[in-house]
Write a protein that binds this DNA or RNA. Sequence first.
DNA 1: CGTTTCCTTGACTTAACTCAAGAGGAGTGG
DNA 2: CCACTCCTCTTGAGTTAAGTCAAGGAAACG
Lengths: 250, 250
Amino acid sequence: MSAPPAHRLLARLRHFTVFSPEERNAINTACGGSALVARQRRDLIREGDRPRGVPLILEGWAFRYKTLEDGRRQIIALHLPGDLCDIHGSILRKMDHSIGALTQVRYVELTRDQIDDLAALGPRVHQALWWDSLTTAAIQREWTVNLGQRDALERLSHLFCELIFRLRAVGMIDGLRCEIPLTQTDLAEATGMTPVHVNRMVQELRSRQLIRWKGREFEALDLDGLCDVAMFNPAYLHLDHEGRHLDALG
Amino acid sequence: MSAPPAHRLLARLRHFTVFSPEERNAINTACGGSALVARQRRDLIREGDRPRGVPLILEGWAFRYKTLEDGRRQIIALHLPGDLCDIHGSILRKMDHSIGALTQVRYVELTRDQIDDLAALGPRVHQALWWDSLTTAAIQREWTVNLGQRDALERLSHLFCELIFRLRAVGMIDGLRCEIPLTQTDLAEATGMTPVHVNRMVQELRSRQLIRWKGREFEALDLDGLCDVAMFNPAYLHLDHEGRHLDALG
DNA sequence: CGTTTCCTTGACTTAACTCAAGAGGAGTGG
DNA sequence: CCACTCCTCTTGAGTTAAGTCAAGGAAACG
């Protein structure tokens, strides 16, 4: 038997609050609908489409992106298992960007009603969903800072640091090792540089003994060092049990 | 007598839905608390602070920013009159960035309860508040694209285009003329370039007869041309009466 | 007025891009 | 099993967009 559907989501939300077993069950039930699969490099939803439900990533990595008229493409966000993509976006009539699958992605689409029902479970769940979308927004802001102020090496290091912390939050890291199913071209589109330059920066991080990365196998050899290079401050991820004050269980 | 407090906010929300007179009154009442004033170049709230209420800008321009350890600073967002800053941010314990006043800013701080009361007025208001925070997120995404993919001239043009559309949405533009109370250094911090280079790009836009800008007086001499340079597509602002389907009044 | 802030310009430097070619794997089909 | 393609990564050489440094001018301010 496999992990419950909301396994990764619950792992993440645990950084904000502590749920009762009933709440956990209810969340798992809500997320237990029939899973959809997007094949690698296909879109889950495309710019211009009318938003359907809210995708919850169960397995695999997805990404949001936007394409300019002349073909330049920017990856706006990365989504890991447990991520809710755009929790309230269904209010808008048209997607202003696309969501694609980096790897094969298993996901469920939560309906508006399902989200509302979850929120109605009580203030803990309600606020946890809020926290989710607020942290998503905070990540987006940090990406803005990253692109605006950091140089290439810092930008790349920062992205690696963020991914490490986020993967850790959903229990997908083994010490400092994890899978990063991104190509250097993907990294280029996420960090606003050319693939060639990403390659040079990756070499630089390798030669400084900060990372090991071959195929999908990634390891931070010196996380503190990597954070220093990136000037990474994880506060924006709001993973530090912010919501303990809401915790009815102790 | 002066304009009702939610004047600009209502002007903006009108792009999403149409309110009944009762709803409008209720919104104005909620926003009618005693206004606060932030002096020019002072902070409304600072990174690390506990969020208080949700600032609603009544007059003046504000900006969100984040500072790196070494002093580099990125302006993450600009806020015009009628903007609600971070409508649900009060759930988080600590601000991960600061909000400052570009000009003198008059604003009110809406409490969590006031927001909840507004949302309880009915689905139109509730969804309009949602729409507000979704468009804020969409703008943040577009800034990510802007910083990641566009070159200096495009970036600057794009920001001008966005400001024109947003100012128009709150009725603060006269044809193609408006006030832009930003210094070139502010623009530099918003677009991730140096003030010197902003200056050169401004000159370039002037010499192409696309803009006039002296002091605070700004005019787009050729908005289509400016949009072309920027590859500006206003869809992300979601100003096209998306919510007419929610409109009970016709 | 004098002072400060903001804008402007020029000369020089540098980070990152471009173009091009080759190497290493992974998968496919004969 | 080999030959093939395709994709990703890697490296080098030359180019360019943007940054840096420095100084002067204009405008706003008190």
